[in-house]
């Protein structure tokens, strides 16, 4: 132990720097194939349910029509979360902070690219002279 931690700086904090987990790896309490498969089965069931909701929902008319796209996007984000948690084993534990932070940065860039493109292109469309007017100017 270094002087610092012996003098009462939290022992756990020093330990916290010690160990990470690779993305995709899972820390299981018991050892065993069954416990691991159980986790994947839960993920599969949840993902199946969300997929079915996405596919069936537009046909049922349960939801107010114009709200269907929003509902579909919500289902998709939920299913991506299920995949991340149950298949890639991203957790909120301290052994996963690096993985989560990299993911957060990736999500930020994805949102900037998609949102920014849609925003700029909608704005350009809005400000463009309508095509029929352009045609009549050429005549």
């Amino acid at each position: 132990m270094s002087e610092l931690s012996r003098d009462g700086l939290d022992d756990q904090q020093a330990e916290g720097d010690q160990h990470d987990i690779a993305p995709g790896d899972e820390q299981l309490d018991g050892s065993g194939v069954l416990e691991g498969v159980r986790g994947y089965l839960i993920g599969l069931a949840l993902a199946m349910g969300l997929t079915l909701c996405s596919f069936i929902l537009p046909a049922t008319g349960l939801i107010y029509g114009p709200a269907i796209p929003v509902a579909l996007i919500v289902f998709a984000i939920a299913q991506m979360g299920v995949h991340l948690v149950f298949f890639i084993h991203i957790t909120t534990g301290p052994d996963n902070t690096n993985n989560v932070l990299a993911l957060a940065f990736g999500v930020l860039i994805v949102l900037l690219v998609i949102g920014g493109s849609l925003w700029i292109m909608a704005n350009l469309n809005h400000n463009m002279t309508p095509m029929n007017q352009v045609m009549s100017m050429q005549r």
Partner: peptide
């Protein structure tokens, strides 16, 4: 001390890089 145990295992480095 701080960083006790040396750099992380190769499995973690490879997995993180691929992530």
């Amino acid at each position: 001390g701080h960083g006790e145990g040396g750099p992380p295992s190769k499995r973690i480095i490879v997995g993180y890089g691929f992530w």
